[in-house]
Write a protein that binds this DNA or RNA. Structure first.
Lengths: 281, 281
DNA sequence: GCTTCACGGTGAAGGGTGTTCACGAAGGTT
DNA sequence: AACCTTCGTGAACACCCTTCACCGTGAAGC
């Protein structure tokens, strides 16, 4: 209807104004402080974050608008760090050895989770995907009273995560032949989700050819298994001694690797995983 | 060993006193009300439970002593219901068809979890096992101020759960031959945990012979995978459409079944699972 | 029978939490 | 200089868990 709005058609603001920069800075500090509290095992509460930064609780509502939103911010930040950590661990093995990278990244993921239980649990509770049964609890909430604009690109933490793993997985699929289900063999609903217009990951799908869907399917399966075992270990549903030994995780990794055609190469890959596991102790 | 115990050496109290009966009754009502709140999607808080029962919050401390303890009670109750549900679903297939029972029970587990998300999440958060990183948060808490005696047999919810599945699994192992790792192949720590004196499940181990440990190991693996996928689905980390279709779960079940030597029989078993899945919709 | 006393409830209070709101003190904008 | 947006504050509300002193009732002991 109306033709212009703030910056938009504007020629003026390629650089953010000083105010905007300050705002962004304190927002980052909020996240930073939240992470610090989490790291120290203290409770992450609006008041705690605020006082830690030297001002009072209501002030945070200029930036966050909600304690749930704050959790979302933290969740994203944590996701980013996990990806960074995985990338750093996988990098030395080189892009020409995607199998090693995959094993290394998965193992790094597991170790990071166990070393940062509180952070991992926060990410887990803050379900970024599928706000379906989130909306259930409080339906028509008008978003914010003091209303800072909702963070753009707020829920893409998982996305980057999936992309990171997905890219490696593609490399593996080109190097290690393993059976990929054809489009016809796949579940119809799954195909529907990932067809253009669905809510799938288009950028990842675009990288793939004809049997791309089958690959995504296998990726999803492997991902479920990895996330499953790590989750169980982190949440204390596995006997602590088994967690310490890492035997169960190793077995699951073996299973995943076998399905990804790495059986012949597994001795080498298992050694890589063990080496990374041994770093924490 | 010794022949008497309930009233111990006592001659007097085979029946609990009227007071005790009342106490037990209201305690059960507390759990009941908690479950009801959970079911209705309302928040489970001491006040809510209390007012729902017609009295005030502090009164609950005569029974529960802690909000965490209340969660523990609820968790146990929920576990019991899950087992009941699984047993009811598996029962029709008869003890002479443990594979069908296993598939049925696993599928029932998944369906129950998806139909009772809040309850499932409560159980999941209330880690009954390994109070290790629970103790971290508040170490030397003196337990209670008004101190009702801590519930005996409070943490055995998981135990019954594992026993239920374990028993079926044993039946499967006798009927469907599949490779079982020998004691030598197993991880040392795993063996250590389950040797006499370890913190394993002695009653289940006693039911098994020489390769019992290998069986437990495989059971643990299968269990991790099942719990993993269900957890992911319940916590909204799988795209909702995939959850609805159940394709991922079905694939995982297939995987588990294959490892348990059910490959040849899978058409029949998959049909059973599908039938149970179809009941909810 | 009466006394005693533990049990099971209450209201008040203290210390948390998230959240809203009216109010100002700045700072940038015009 | 006069605006006006931004951002912080203090007070207040509602809710949470938890503790405590206080009683009434009902069971147990003499």
């Amino acid at each position: 209807m109306s033709q212009v709005d703030p910056g938009r058609v504007g020629q003026k603001r390629p650089v953010r104004s000083r105010r905007e920069r300050l705002r962004q800075s304190t927002l980052e500090e909020i996240v930073e402080v939240g992470r610090a509290l989490l790291r120290e095992g203290r409770e992450v509460t609006l008041r705690a974050v605020a006082t830690e930064m030297g001002f009072t609780a209501p002030a945070l509502y200029r930036y966050v608008g909600n304690v749930a939103a704050l959790n979302g911010l933290l969740s994203n930040n944590i996701f980013a760090e996990i990806v960074r950590e995985m990338a750093a661990t996988a990098e030395p093995y080189g892009d020409d050895d995607p199998a090693a990278q995959m094993v290394a990244a998965a193992t790094a993921f597991r170790c990071w989770a166990l070393d940062h239980i509180d952070e991992f649990q926060l990410v887990f509770h803050t379900n970024s995907l599928s706000g379906e049964h989130v909306a259930r609890s409080k339906a028509g909430k008008p978003l914010h009273p003091l209303a800072p604009p909702p963070q753009e690109g707020a829920a893409d933490g998982v996305q980057k995560f999936a992309d990171f793993f997905g890219r490696i997985f593609i490399g593996v699929s080109q190097q290690y032949p393993f059976p990929v289900p054809s489009r016809a063999e796949l579940d119809d609903d799954f195909v529907a989700v990932h067809s253009p217009g669905g809510s799938g990951k288009p950028d990842l799908a675009r990288l793939l050819g004809a049997d791309g869907l089958g690959l995504i399917w296998l990726f999803e399966l492997a991902w479920a298994q990895l996330y499953g075992i790590v989750t169980l270990e982190v949440f204390g549903h596995i006997r602590p001694q088994l967690v310490r030994s890492g035997a169960l995780f190793t077995a699951v990794m073996h299973e995943i690797g076998r399905r990804a055609g790495m059986a012949d190469d597994w001795d080498r890959l298992a050694a890589i995983s063990q080496e990374i596991l041994a770093r924490r102790a």
